[in-house]
Every structure is written in C-alpha cells, then in structure tokens.
C-alpha cells in the first residue's frame, strides 16, 4: 500500500517561507482553491495557508539553536481527523494515503480540526469549509506536467531541498531511506496518529585537530629566518685542523 508523504529536513531548512507562498499560489488557483485572504491590505491580515514555517529557539545564549520548522498536514496513517467527521467529507485515500477534504460534503462543523493535534487544518472563512494540505494531489498525478515536476509545489520551490516527497511505505524510496538513515521522526508520536510526514533532525559536522597536526615538517616558517648570514668573526672552525 502506498503512503505518500513529505520528509522535512530540519538540518537544511533555513526558514525562507518559499514553501509557504508556493503552496499558497499553487493551491489558490487549483482544485483546493481559492484560498481566502481577509483584510489583505488592512489591519491584521489573515488568510488560508496550508503550510507555515515557524521558528523555535532551543537552549540559552550562547548555546542557542534556532530551528526553522515548516508544518503542513502530516497525512497521518491513523488520521484522527477522518473518523470524527460526521459527513465523510474528511477522508483518507486508500490508494495513496493522502488525507483530503471533499468541500462539497463538508458542513463546516470544524470538528475534524479539533481532532487534529497538529493544528494542520484551516477553515476557509469565505467558503465555510475546512481546508488543508492536499499533498498537491492536483499536481502529482497531472500527466500534462513533465514527470520530474509532478511533485508538490512546496517541494519544487524549496531552495534547500529540505522537503522530500515520496512513498514512505516503499522501503527503497528516497523518503524511506532518508528516514532510515537520517533518523527521521514523527511529531508527537505519543498520540498514536502515525504521521506519514517525518522530520529529519539537525546533524553537526565537527572538526577535531590533534596537536600534532598543527606543525608539520613542511611548515613554511622553516623556509624563513633559518639562513643566517655567514659570520665574519673568527670561529673554532677556522682553528681546528
């Protein structure tokens, strides 16, 4: 069985928000759109976005880590938002595990969002239906798009390629390998929702220099100052035969 998902590499995410606006522009004009904006030019502008990039700080100065943390729907394998939906508008596709909302069925009761511990759903205040990341279902199967571009908009946009996309059930897929080898982890595993999306942690490259490595035989300083001018004074050398 296929489970499509994103794997987000926190090791390289610089928090640029490219995934945020590329998602918005793809989806506002796509099948999930339009995506509402309220007060776009006034006070407290707000709007429907499927993907946000947040920032966390870990530790205390000077041992601070700044973590940029993108988050969209995690397409949970045991998606708690699905069974609670009274209309069936919220569903998980059997064929690829994408969790979607059928806007035509949604009554806008918001109950599914209560059941999402990740805050990944957004209510469209204009269409009055629940919306969320669709994993760009209207891109990834679109045969009019060149095959290598049949990926979510956010994945294509991401300048650091921090967003990987693929089937986490296929052990040989890029995403599965990344999870396996990069220590990928799910968010809030304690809830048992089994998020399909995974996150790759920060990794550090360190350099240790051994004292012996500092000064080598070819140290350029040896080429300086070692040739002293020939002494003019009489030395023992002049005397000993």
């Amino acid at each position: 069985m296929t489970q499509l998902a994103l794997v987000i590499d926190l090791n390289v995410c610089v928090g640029c928000h490219a995934c945020v606006t590329s998602c918005k522009q793809w989806n506002t004009s796509g099948q999930a759109g339009p995506l509402f904006d309220d007060n776009p030019y006034g006070q407290d502008p707000t709007g429907t976005f499927f993907n946000r990039v947040q920032t966390f700080e870990v530790g205390e100065f000077p041992c601070t880590e700044t973590i940029h943390f993108p988050k969209s729907c995690l397409h949970c394998e045991d998606a708690p938002c699905v069974p609670v939906c009274p209309t069936g508008a919220s569903y998980k596709r059997a064929e690829d595990g994408i969790v979607l909302v059928d806007y035509d069925k949604c009554i806008g009761c918001k109950y599914c969002s209560w059941a999402c511990p990740y805050g990944a759903r957004e209510f469209d205040e204009n269409q009055k239906v629940m919306k969320k990341c669709t994993l760009c279902v209207d891109r990834i199967y679109d045969t009019t798009i060149p095959p290598e571009r049949r990926k979510p908009a956010c994945v294509l946009a991401c300048p650091t390629s921090a967003r990987l996309f693929g089937d986490v059930h296929d052990p040989e897929s890029e995403v599965s390998i990344a999870i396996r080898e990069g220590g990928g982890y799910p968010l809030m595993p304690e809830w048992g929702t089994k998020p399909a999306n995974h996150y790759l942690p920060r990794r550090k490259t360190k350099l240790r220099i051994h004292e012996d490595e500092l000064v080598r035989a070819d140290n350029p300083l040896r080429k300086e100052d070692i040739r002293h001018e020939t002494g003019k004074d009489v030395t023992l050398d002049d005397w000993l035969m």
Binding site: K24, W26, R149, A153, L156, A157, P159
Partner: peptide
C-alpha cells in the same frame, strides 16, 4: 495562475523563493 522556478535556469535550477512565489 502560477509562477514556478525554471528548472533549466543556471541560477535557481527550478527552485523559487517566498518572494518569487508571491
């Protein structure tokens, strides 16, 4: 309708930043 990075461009190789996407 949509602006995407040009994969055949030497500079951005298909990616696009937050501004470019807006």
């Amino acid at each position: 309708r949509f602006i995407e990075g040009n994969p055949d461009h030497p500079l951005n190789q298909g990616v696009l930043c937050a501004k470019g996407s807006s």
